[in-house]
């Protein structure tokens, strides 16, 4: 164990892999010292495990109806009670983890690279390219995200795929801003000029040298944004514009439970606890990651 640790923390690593692994290990140790970040990490890990092992964790299938067991309160047999079709709410919440995870992952995969690329190109080239790209970014940035997502879904039609596209369209500008600011700080550095002198093309410089340097602040920002993405997706589901029934999406489940809220409170409240827990997890983890990866911003806000 100690030999592995010594190898990881070696001051003069012998290979790129060793250096990178060593860095990751140092960050991981710094993260483990922050109790809230650990709590956040455990919550996210639970979400991922619940999504992967849903069929083994959930006592029943998410769609299995049992009209004889409608609207039962929470009990030993049904931890979170049952809904209006006799489906076990706990099982649906567990399967819902898959949908939530898919939404946040896809939004991140679409919007983060898009924002990263636009920001890096704007910051690297400067001039009128920068002006045009950042003008478009600023227009999107100064608009209310939820309203814009609603309008896009209205045009594209309800459904989980369109909800993901709409949220991604409204999420990229923040990333473009960050990537541009990062790029501006080192666009005139010597290593960039050296690569230029050695004949490296603009594409090569952006892809191999600029983008990797922007990723750490990007990871922090994406993690912090996850809570907002989850809330927007749940909101779209609640309004009937996101995931459609009978999919066990948490927001859509709350929407169904709304009808019974006064007498069978558990139908609508239980999925809400899942949303809060996962969003809080991302907030805690994001805060911790920021302190480790982005010390400049640490302590602020």
């Amino acid at each position: 164990m100690t030999t592995v640790q010594n190898w990881l923390l070696d001051d003069s690593p012998n290979s790129k892999i060793q250096a990178n692994l060593g860095n990751s290990y140092r960050m991981f140790r710094a993260l483990m010292r922050n109790p809230l970040a650990v709590v956040g990490g455990v919550i996210i890990l639970t979400l991922v495990l619940a999504a992967i092992f849903a069929p083994w964790i959930a006592p029943q299938t998410p769609l299995g109806q049992d009209l004889g067991a409608r609207l039962l309160p929470p009990s030993a047999a049904h931890w979170m009670g049952t809904d209006e079709l006799g489906r076990d709410i706990f099982s649906r919440v567990v399967y819902g983890a898959r949908i939530t995870l898919m939404i946040v992952a896809l939004v991140a995969i679409i919007s983060a690279p898009l924002g990263l690329l636009i920001g890096a190109v704007a910051g690297y080239f400067g001039g009128w390219i920068d002006k045009i790209l950042m003008g478009i970014t600023d227009v999107f940035l100064s608009m209310p995200k939820l309203i814009l997502a609603l309008a896009f879904v209205a045009a594209l039609g309800p459904g989980i795929e369109n909800a993901i596209i709409a949220i991604a369209i409204t999420s990229w500008p923040a990333y473009a801003r960050i990537a541009r600011a990062e790029t501006m700080t080192f666009r005139n550095s010597e290593f960039i000029s050296a690569t230029r002198l050695l004949g490296g093309s603009h594409t090569r410089i952006i892809v191999r040298h600029v983008l990797p340097l922007c990723t750490s602040s990007m990871i922090v920002r994406v993690t912090l944004d996850m809570a907002g993405i989850i809330l927007t997706a749940a909101g779209l589901g609640f309004l009937g514009l996101g995931a459609q029934p009978p999919l066990p999406e948490w927001g859509a489940m709350i929407s169904r439970g709304r009808t019974f809220i006064l007498d069978q409170w558990w139908v609508a409240t239980m999925p809400g606890f899942a949303i809060i827990l996962v969003s809080l997890g991302f907030c805690f983890l994001g805060d911790g990651l920021r302190d480790v990866l982005d010390p400049k911003q640490g302590g602020k806000s």
């Binding site: 809330l231 909101g235 709350i254 006064l262 949303i275 907030c283």
Partner: peptide, 22 residues
């Protein structure tokens, strides 16, 4: 304050109705 970033507004509205109204 972090709860304010994590609680869905519509859910809090429903819970508020159940608790403070009903």
């Amino acid at each position: 304050a972090l709860l304010g970033y994590s609680v869905p507004a519509f859910w809090l509205g429903l819970v508020g109705l159940v608790v403070f109204y009903a």
